[in-house]
Design a protein around this nucleic acid. Sequence first.
DNA 1: TTGTCAAGAACGGACATTCGTTTTATGTTC
DNA 2: GAACATAAAACGAATGTCCGTTCTTGACAA
Lengths: 189, 189
Amino acid sequence: MARRAQIVAAARTCVVEQGFHKTTMADVIRESGLSAGAVYGYFKSKEEIVAAIAEEALGTVDELFEKILTTEHPLTPLAALEAALNHAVTIAERPGGDVTRVAVQAWAEALHNPAILDIAGGKYLLLREHFEDVVRRAQADGTVDPDTDPKYIAQVMFGMLPGFVLQRLLIGDVTPDTYTAGLKALFRA
Amino acid sequence: MARRAQIVAAARTCVVEQGFHKTTMADVIRESGLSAGAVYGYFKSKEEIVAAIAEEALGTVDELFEKILTTEHPLTPLAALEAALNHAVTIAERPGGDVTRVAVQAWAEALHNPAILDIAGGKYLLLREHFEDVVRRAQADGTVDPDTDPKYIAQVMFGMLPGFVLQRLLIGDVTPDTYTAGLKALFRA
DNA sequence: TTGTCAAGAACGGACATTCGTTTTATGTTC
DNA sequence: GAACATAAAACGAATGTCCGTTCTTGACAA
């Protein structure tokens, strides 16, 4: 199991640097410090390794809600988004390579790879449900219009994260602070 | 030039179905109805074709503002976003394949391909500036807080589009209507 | 004839995966 | 504790396929 983690870590490093398709098995094998035979002893194929990395990367977002949802009561949508943005940057800067880069790779891969689509769809539906919980509480508090389907509000809230991640990676001039400032201005319009 | 367009169209079809990396030159050649020699007469390499598709796909978003910004005065942020979402769905459903799928591919590709990064960064900065114009007008009207940097507000507005596109493709339960409903509820919080 | 364009067979390189061999770890017997 | 037997893990060169690109040949137009 330690070996398995070692291989996934090595593969993640390669994927962060080169993307899913440009990383060769030779790369992963070299980076892991193992041999081809050893790696194939733990994973049946490259596709299986890719799935493992994607699952790991897309799962990191959920960590947030385990903390947030249970501790800070009550939570406004704005505060929840602020926490999510900060969390995204935190996990992006963790050692071992920016996982948000892996996530973007996974989005593209999901469009043509049913296994990855399942993983991405599943993880993101879960995340959206967490936002939905936040919304329901805010509706109960009267902070948010109670006549709008919380699902729709959660869609929009969740939908802010990909845009933030993308701008951070492709343009590089967004931070949780600039984004929060923009959000505050829009929410009071 | 007609030949060039013919090749790009064929390649786009392949990329929509299979993604950048799984589409082989043989696929493009077959789909275009030409020969290898002919295709390589118009493009130096596969990478050049990929860049052409990406440029085309990422450029479609700009069409919107040429209409919107000049005709409808004044435009609230909400109305601008609503128009952008509808436009996204419109171009996605155009014959020739869902270009938003190509866009997602381009996001991933941009992380490791400087040429694509330039294209994506450039197009998206332009788009964001258009949102910034909308914000400035709304600030002049008093519809939006004038003390917040319009750039930050534009970042957030632009940032909603990737999330919408992604949810539409990966989960499939968002429409401009559900999204607009969610937006309205949040903007009045 | 000459110049332009297209055809498509052929090439060279890269890649994922396999498999026979070797090393390391574990247990067993005297 | 030494010597051996057995199993598990790791090695890495070899393999066959696939893919981007080239290049020679042929058709047609001016």
